[in-house]
């Protein structure tokens, strides 16, 4: 049986003033019902573009899906009409965004905003939708939900707002829930609460979750499987335990060694030297080559492909050649 959501060879291009650039290049991912897929990488590596592609929310123009398929329960979303996508969005798949502070409309009450999501996809009265919204606010752990539903976003804290976003996202019991850096803007204790909430929600609703993050800690806590992305490509993929314990790609190793290990007496935060190259400056070779300690001439001329190696697939010439 094929997965609930299957992304196959997805290619997304953007028209920029430097000419067309490839934001996603042959990205293949899949996630099953009740499973959590973590997608990691630094900012600008294509995680959010992947999520927006699934939702059909790539700003177009300048962006467009240039190839590949996104199958939700067998239906190819890249071929779906805009009307069909509208019917799916919010109902079958929903998204939680990175910025709870700005992702809610400031001029409507949070209750109305959740009720709107319900009414867009279910035939219920406005009163019923609002009562459902209150129940959802209660479900995501907002105290005195009756009163809070009548509040405007600016009257709530960041953590509260993210709970509202989650309530809105799960209001129609979507099959796929995409969480794009849901905790980045929140402080650490609130982060843990939000992750707990997502786990509970998943148990209750059986949704597939795609968790997009740059935080390896979050991955180890939440994800069943993980895909590491770099400059628009998936460079390593596998079960979360495998990838975390036995990372193969130099980039993944870098990311993991950046997690500050408590109690090991390290007082400096390590980081991978250099930055993700701008997409318009990608050459013919491996995009990570500039920052890689294992760089060889082949890395500058040929893009490594994702292929099975050891426990799980990885895209690296050095790993393939056994140099690591």
């Amino acid at each position: 049986m094929s997965a609930l959501l299957q992304i196959e060879d997805l290619r997304v291009t953007f028209n920029t003033r430097y000419g067309p650039v490839t934001a996603l290049d042959s990205v293949s991912l899949s996630v099953n019902a009740g499973e959590t897929l973590g997608v990691v990488g630094e900012s600008g590596c294509g995680k959010s573009i992947t999520a927006l592609s699934v939702m059909g929310l790539i700003p177009s123009p300048p962006g467009k899906i240039a190839g590949g398929a996104i199958r939700l329960a067998g239906e190819d979303l890249t071929q779906a009409s805009e009307a069909r996508m509208r019917a799916l969005r919010g109902a079958e798949m929903a998204m939680i965004f990175q910025e709870p502070m700005t992702s809610l409309n400031p001029v409507f009450t949070v209750g109305d905003q959740i009720a709107e999501a319900i009414m867009l996809h279910q035939k219920v009265s406005a009163d019923q939708a609002f009562r459902d919204a209150v129940a959802l606010l209660d479900r995501v752990g907002i105290p005195s939900p009756d009163r809070r539903a009548r509040d405007y976003p600016h009257q709530l804290s960041g953590g509260m707002r993210q709970r509202v976003m989650i309530a809105m996202a799960v209001s129609c019991r979507p099959k796929v829930l995409i969480a794009d850096e849901p905790t980045t803007a929140l402080d650490v204790t609130v982060q843990a609460q939000i992750f707990d909430l997502l786990n509970e929600i998943q148990r209750d609703f059986g949704a597939a979750i795609i968790l997009i993050t740059h935080d390896m800690g979050a991955i180890s806590e939440m994800a069943d499987r993980v895909a590491v992305m770099y400059a628009g490509r998936v460079i390593e993929q596998g079960r979360a335990d495998d990838v975390l314990d036995l990372p193969q790609h130099p980039y993944t190793r870098g990311l993991i060694s950046c997690i500050p290990a408590l109690g090991k007496g390290e007082d400096t935060l390590r980081e991978i030297p250099g930055v993700v190259p701008p997409l318009h400056m990608l050459g013919a070779g491996c995009a990570f080559a500039d920052r890689c300690a294992y760089r060889a001439p082949r890395c500058d001329s040929e893009k490594p492909q994702l292929q099975a190696h050891g426990h799980h697939p990885v895209a690296c010439h050095a790993v393939e050649e056994g140099r690591i």
């Binding site: 929310l57 969005r89 965004f97």
Partner: peptide, 13 residues
């Protein structure tokens, strides 16, 4: 702005 993206993600017309 972000909340427009949210509205679209809900499936608003």
């Amino acid at each position: 702005s972000d909340y427009i993206r949210t509205a679209r993600a809900k499936g608003a017309s």
